[in-house]
Amino acid sequence: MAGLEDLYREIILDHYRAPRNRGELEVPPAHQVEGFNPLCGDEVILYLDVENGMVSDVKIAGQGCSISQASTSMMSAAVKGRSVAEARTITRAFKALMSIHESKIGGDDVDATADDLAGVRLGDLEALQGVVKFPVRIKCATLAWNTLVQGLDEIESSH
């Protein structure tokens, strides 16, 4: 099953089996934001602790398939401890990785120029690149990231 191993890389299965940053944060001070994939019922709930422009803590609740759960876990590890600006840049870079099909379906953040993203290191997140070969699963991989952007927007607009 070579095709499957493109999709389900070991690092993805590792994040699925042992998700990072599961839990909840007290709201407030943390901000809670929910994302749904209406097609399959996957749900992600993010608790974001943003202080002085830094994503100081992230916790995750919700349920979904291995791709959505692993992507959510990897997202939390990638943005925790980063500035909001860095989190947004990583998000754009990740969505560019997924952009082959996503750009037409609500990917309003993928218009960043290549220069903008040059030098952004995605590390483990690149394991999710195989998802692009399975178009219906792209929404599973981007759910957490769209939810993150929504949460960061809500936090910034409330200030």
Partner: peptide, 18 residues
């Protein structure tokens, strides 16, 4: 998750809904 099961089945040309 049902999606993951369906993905494996798809490799073997078994079409189910998830």
């Amino acid at each position: 998750h049902a999606h993951d099961v369906s993905q494996v089945l798809d490799e073997e040309a078994v079409c189910v809904r998830a």
